[in-house]
Write a protein that binds this DNA or RNA. Structure first.
Length: 519
RNA sequence: GCCCCCAUCGUCUAGCGGUCCAGGACGCCGCCCUUUCAAGGCGGUAGCACGGGUUCGAACCCCGUUGGGGGCACCA
C-alpha cells in the first residue's frame, strides 16, 4: 500500500545543494528503509521524545520499511525498569508498533544495550587492532595544562596528544597504574553530510577532537555504542533530535572506521528534527508540566488526536488542512518536508485537534472510551448498570460535541449520575442571582403536573411558562434552570437532560436551586 | 570563548524566483444559528527580523548584522 520503495532520490530535490568542494564520505546503505527509536529509560516520557518516535515510525511505515525499537540502558544509575515499561506502554498507546525490539524480538537482538556489552567489547578490540582507535592516557588535568601552556582555551578539549605513543610510553603509563581510554582517530578532512531536514551541514577538518569510545574502566560510551548498534541493526535513516546534531561529525568518522573493518555496511542518512519547546522558547524540559505525556493521556486525549497534533510539530500534510488520521499521516509523510525550526507545544491547539477527533468518533467508540473515566470518578459502576448504560447511550451523542478531552465527561455528565448536584459557585453567581427565583418557581409549577415526562413535553411546558408566561428572553429563562439542574452553565441540552434525570430529581433540584437563588 | 542550527501573523505552518498588496489552522474579536455553553456557519484581527547584493523581478538565492536555540565530558 505504501509501496514507495526507498526512492530517496526525489526526496532530496529541494535540500540537496551542489557540493563541488567537500567530498561526501558517506554512502547510504542500499535497500529498504530501517529506522529506529532508541530512548534511555530515565524519568517521564516527554512529548518531544514521542514526536521523534512518531517521525521515525511514520517514515518507516510510509516507505514500507522497518521500525526498530532499542533501549539505551547503559546508565545503570539513572535507568529504571519502571521507566522502561512506561516507554513501551506509551508507544503502544499511540499505536506506534515496532517490527523489532523489546518483547517482539528480531534478528539483530538483544535490543537492550545493557545486554550487548560483549558486542561492544569485540568491536572496540577490532577498532584498536586496525588502528582506527588508539589508547590514550592523558588525564583532563594534563590536557588542560597543555592547552593553557599553549595559550589556548581549555574548552577546546583533548588535543590528540596521545595519537602516536610508543609501546614503551604506553608501558610506562601502565606502570604508573593508569588505565587508558580508547579514542577514535578523527580524519583530517571536513565532515559533511546531507541532512534529511537541513540540507548540507559541514564541520571543518580538525574541529572535532579524537573522542572517547571506551572508558578507562572498560565501559563503552554512548557516542560509540549508538552507532555500533545502528550499524549492526542495519539502520539506514537516523531521525533524532537537533541536540544530537553536533555529535554527528564524530559518528560519521566512526562509521567510516566501522565500514572499513566490516562492521558497518555504510553510513546512514541523518535527519535532525527541530526541538519541541514549551512556553517562551525554552527547550521543553522534563519538569515542564506540558511535556509529560501522562498528563495528556490521563486527561483523555485520544491517541489519534495526540498523534495528529504531534505530527504538526514540524510537519504539515497540506496547505489548507491539519486534521488527519494516523493512516493518512503514514500515507503522506515525507521526512524531507520536515521543517527545521523549533516548534512550540501549544496546548490549546492540541486540544482543538483532539476535540475534532473526539467529535468524529463513532458513538459506540466514544462511549467505550469515555465510560472508564466516569467509572473511575465513581459516577457509574464498572461495568455500568443497565440503567446507567441506557442513560449513557442517550446522552453520549449530545455530550460528545461539547467535550475536548474524555475526562470532561466527568464534569459534564456527573449531574446525571448523582442524587444531588453540586452547584458550581461561578455558575450560581452568574445565573442564580436576581430574577432567578421567579424563573425557578414558574418552571417548577409548569413541570410539577406535566402529564407526560418527555423531552418534547418539557420543552413546550417550559417555553410556555418562562418565555411566554414570564415574557423572558430564552437566554434569561433557561440559564437558571440549567444551572439548578446540572450545576453548570455548560451542559448537554436541557430538555433531554431533564427527561433523563426524571421528574423527581428535576423538581428536587429546582427546589434546591430556589434555596440558593438570591432573587 | 569556539563550533553548529534556526528566523513568515501571538502560536504551528503553506510558500521551492513572477500565479503573494503572502494561504490555512489554533487563539482572540464580531455576527448568524440557537435553549445557556459548546458545536456549526460567516466575517475580522495579525506576519515575511534588519541591511546589502544577485535578478527585468526576491518571503524564496548569496553575504553580513541582529535575535533565538543547541553543543563543546571517561552523561545519554
Amino acid at each position: 500500500m505504501h509501496d514507495r520503495g526507498a526512492g530517496h532520490a526525489d526526496q532530496h530535490r529541494r535540500r540537496r545543494r551542489p557540493d563541488l568542494h567537500g567530498r561526501r564520505p558517506m554512502t547510504a546503505p542500499a535497500g529498504p528503509v530501517r529506522t529506529r527509536f532508541c530512548p534511555s529509560p530515565t524519568g517521564l516520557v516527554h512529548v518531544g521524545l514521542l514526536r521523534t518516535a512518531l517521525f521515525n515510525w511514520a517514515h518507516a511505515r510510509h516507505t514500507g520499511g522497518t521500525f526498530v525499537f532499542r533501549i539505551e540502558d547503559t546508565d545503570a544509575a539513572r535507568d529504571s525498569e519502571e521507566s522502561y515499561r512506561h516507554l513501551l506502554d506509551c508507544l503502544r498507546w499511540l499505536g506506534l508498533d515496532w517490527d523489532e525490539g523489546p518483547e517482539v524480538g528480531g534478528p539483530h537482538g538483544p535490543y537492550r544495550q545493557s545486554e550487548r556489552y560483549d558486542v561492544y567489547r569485540e568491536v572496540a578490540a577490532k577498532l584498536l587492532a586496525s588502528g582506527h582507535a588508539y589508547e590514550s592516557f592523558s588525564t583532563n588535568e594534563e590536557v588542560d595544562a597543555r592547552r593553557r601552556a599553549a595559550g589556548q582555551d581549555t574548552k577546546l578539549g583533548y588535543d590528540n596528544h596521545d595519537r602516536s605513543l610508543t609501546d614503551a610510553q604506553k608501558a610506562a603509563f601502565r606502570a604508573e597504574g593508569r588505565d587508558p581510554v580508547l579514542r577514535l582517530r578523527m580524519p583530517d578532512s571536513d565532515l559533511v553530510w546531507d541532512d534529511l531536514v537541513r540540507g548540507e551541514v559541514r564541520f571543518a577538518a580538525g574541529s572535532v577532537p579524537d573522542f572517547v569510545l571506551v572508558r578507562g574502566n572498560g565501559a563503552p560510551l554512548y557516542p560509540f555504542v549508538n552507532p555500533v548498534d545502528d550499524a549492526l541493526m542495519g539502520i539506514t535513516d537516523v531521525l533524532r533530535g537537533e541536540d544530537l546534531l553536533p555529535s554527528t561529525p564524530r559518528q560519521l568518522a566512526l562509521y567510516a572506521a566501522l565500514t572499513d573493518i566490516g562492521v558497518a555496511q555504510g553510513t546512514p542518512r541523518f535527519g535532525h528534527l527541530p526541538y519541541v519547546t514549551g512556553e517562551g522558547s525554552k527547550k521543553l524540559s522534563k519538569r515542564d508540566p506540558t511535556s509529560n505525556v501522562d498528563v495528556y493521556r490521563e486527561r483523555g486525549f485520544l491517541p489519534e488526536g495526540l498523534v495528529n497534533y504531534l505530527a504538526l510539530l514540524g510537519w504539515s500534510i497540506a496547505e489548507d488542512r491539519d486534521v488527519f488520521s494516523t493512516a493518512e499521516l503514514v500515507e503522506a509523510f515525507d521526512v524531507t518536508r520536515v521543517s527545521a525550526n523549533p516548534a512550540r507545544f501549544d496546548v490549546k491547539k492540541a486540544e482543538a485537534i483532539n476535540a475534532t477527533h473526539l467529535r468524529a468518533l463513532p458513538v459506540e467508540e466514544f462511549l467505550a472510551a469515555v465510560t472508564p473515566y466516569l467509572a473511575s470518578a465513581g459516577l457509574v459502576t464498572d461495568p455500568p448498570t443497565a440503567e446507567q448504560a441506557a442513560t449513557l447511550e442517550a446522552i453520549a451523542p449530545l455530550a460528545q460535541e461539547r467535550m475536548i478531552v474524555l475526562s470532561d465527561a466527568v464534569g459534564l455528565l456527573g449531574f446525571l449520575f448523582t442524587e444531588d448536584v453540586e452547584i458550581d459557585p461561578a455558575a450560581a453567581e452568574k445565573q442564580l442571582g436576581a430574577g432567578a427565583g421567579e424563573v425557578l418557581d414558574a418552571a417548577t409549577a409548569a413541570l410539577h403536573a406535566l402529564p407526560e415526562w418527555t423531552t418534547a413535553a418539557i420543552e413546550t411546558a417550559l417555553k410556555e411558562a418562562l418565555v411566554e408566561g414570564l415574557g423572558r428572553k430564552p437566554r434569561q429563562a433557561f440559564g437558571p434552570v440549567r444551572v439548578a439542574v446540572s450545576g453548570r452553565t455548560v451542559s448537554p441540552p436541557l430538555y433531554e437532560s431533564m427527561e433523563l434525570l426524571g421528574r423527581e430529581r428535576t423538581l428536587a433540584r429546582l427546589a434546591a436551586g430556589r434555596g440558593i437563588a438570591t432573587g
